[in-house]
Write a protein that binds this DNA or RNA. Sequence first.
RNA 1: GCGGGUGUGGCGGAAUUGGCAGACGCGCUAGAUUUAGGAUCUAGUGUCUUCGACGUGGGGGUUCAAGUCCCUCCACCCGCACCA
Length: 805
Amino acid sequence: MSFDHQRIEEKWRNYWLDNKTFKSDSDTNKDKYYVLDMFPYPSGAGLHVGHPEGYTATDIIARMKRMQGYEVLHPMGWDAFGLPAEQYALDTGNDPEEFTRQNIETFRRQIQELGFSYDWDREINTTDPNYYKWTQWIFLKLYEKGLAYIDEVPVNWCPALGTVLANEEVIDGKSERGGHPVERRPMKQWMLKITAYADRLLEDLEELDWPESIKDMQRNWIGRSEGAEVHFGIDGLEDTFTVFTTRPDTLFGATYTVMAPEHPLIDKIVSTEQQQKVADYIKDVQAKSDLERTDLAKEKSGVFTGAYAVNPINREKLPIWVADYVLMSYGSGAIMAVPAHDERDYEFAVKFELPIIPVVEGGNTEKEAFTGSGPHINSAFLDGLDTQEAIVKAIDWLEAHGKGERKVTYRLRDWLFSRQRYWGEPIPIIHWEDGTMSAVREEDLPLELPKTNEIKPSGTGESPLANIEDWVSVVDPETGKKGRRETNTMPQWAGSCWYFLRYIDPQNPDALADYERLEKWLPADTYIGGAEHAVLHLLYARFWHKFLYDIGVVPTKEPFQKLYNQGMILGENNEKMSKSKGNVVNPDEIVASHGADTLRLYEMFMGPLDAAVAWSTNGLDGARRFLDRVWRLFVTEDGKMSGKVVADSSDTSLEKAYHETVKKVTENFEALRFNTGISQMMVFINEAYKAKEIPQLFAEGFVKLLSPVAPHLAEEIWESFGHSETLAYQSWPAFDEAKLVEDEVEVAIQVMGKVRAKMMVSKDASKDELEKQALELESIQDWLEGKTVRKVIAVPGKLVNIVAN
RNA sequence: GCGGGUGUGGCGGAAUUGGCAGACGCGCUAGAUUUAGGAUCUAGUGUCUUCGACGUGGGGGUUCAAGUCCCUCCACCCGCACCA
């Protein structure tokens, strides 16, 4: 008989909600455990089967930790600002707030139907003014400390979306959302000075328990690079310009210099003869999109300016070129070119027939650039030194002569923080008619987003808020000075940078969270979400957290101690699930047909949590079959404890299997290896079916082990065993190491590394005994006939290997 | 191109420090049971030329012993991509 999942799941879902079973208490003296999910964007499409994968993983940890006696914080909320709601509103004329509210209702219902043990009293929503009040407050603090500033920067303007996108939201020259073309356009934008934290963001990665791949991605993203700035004079002019190089040791090999097309000095230095050519080239480059500029990378282009730089180390005159392989946004926007020892410079020098002077011995610069290290040549006082020594000596020389200095640069750029959108947190700044600017006073927060049914882009690049005159115009009540509110809003990342703090104290009207409570709960012990947030969300959140740490708001340097990335669930055809491919699995349907417990079990059993695995309907059926087997084993047709389960059983046949199961399940769950933990539970059930009777202690222990994965079913079985209290806080089973070892163990006997026989021996049998017994075996003697035993390796408890020929 | 990762039966995947490859599940085969079943139970299931041999992407090596360590090549996935 199979269990009635619809009845059981509804019963326990309501029980947990009505009794607030999973409410966490910040004032206990239990040890804390904070298990965090990446909160979802509540899209109109509803929950995807990918969501429950990570949520089940964290739920298993949360439920296990509760049973192990921890006070567990396990919250859920909504990352509800964002473009889709705004786009929907534009398309349909509906209110994004209403649309978002409905989506949240759907998500909450779906998540609750899956039986996750969230404390719903801590639910947060980034679009709630009581929440974004604090998002705005953090912005004001950043502004106060000079970390938020306005800059005129070339931005990724997307005409179709009517907004500016961050670099990372542009993929292959198109918008990440919608795939619309993106162009460069200079605009005044709010920037956050994340680069001020570059070193700390890099260094503190060391102490985090994160996947190495994610740490690496963050390291690459930050892109720290040590070298020197070198100041070059310009022949015939007073001006100088600066280049950044990681190889100051090759300064004697510089044969030309290059400025990025946007370099401000070009206009000034260009010679009359070259003026037209340079202007044409720059115009050409500007017409190219970023995509074209990088795509055409294979063929170098550039033009001579007619001007010459003076190499500070030897007074050599070097032609100054303009080329788009030099980027204005990195270093100082100009380089010294050492074609003998840099592949890009080499390629350029070959194409434009510029001299190539080797200064490091080792390669063949007739054929290619040599980027390795070796003794220096043609380099005056650096001759004979190896690369490392020469770098140090070159920098020392530059510093001593005022021609340059040691310098660290980063690939990381400041964070473009404004968006020309309606559905985001308003930036709490007022621009006054006299050209000054001031922050909205803290006591006036939250600065609420005005209601409107006019959310079309203004088209000028301003957000739709610019159209709402009542809201935009302000008058200083004291001076009568007129002003205009900032019309840009914050990007979606803003709310998700600190949401895990608000869960800790979600109703606090006076602070984003109480400091003592933050001390109790931080950092998040386990944080699980998709790998797509490897750099953006995780880097931005770390940045804000470090800032909040610096101003004394949070007690820890890092927000997320242990991070894990769940993999993707693919469609049955092994492709990414998508509406267009028609391979989307809807969790609601699975919950109806197989039940939430089955879905949870199946998603955890599919494979390792971090792997991308294809959905399988057969596999899902198998998961359900296992739960049915468990149910039938323990519960009778009329819902009572099965007669096979015996309270005072003296049957010890299941002892070893039970203790092994407790051990493996506990360890595997702890390490997020749910697939192997579940397989061990299956082994136990297979054994239990073979046993004559099952001691009730083992049956109850098993139900506890199963409960984090299949909580509804486990509660029901627990109740049928005669318990009236929820299983959620019962103590987690312990195992006895002594019960794991048997007196007799089977060892394999190998001849020349191949298993030829097996025998049962006492677990304490010594090497000598093993060897002796193995050699006496008849079947082994057959194998040894005509051979001489050269050596015998005996590993107690494992095997004996006889080397003979 | 650079960085990271993965490669094991028909399929998803297991295998502490190198120590019996293929746990567990799916699928498949046979039997039992059933009015019947896509239900349940039992047994079997890596390949082959089956008292044996061969098997963890290919090739080589270290070792008594290699999925695991070393070298090399191949394929696929993810991230970055003229970062000086």
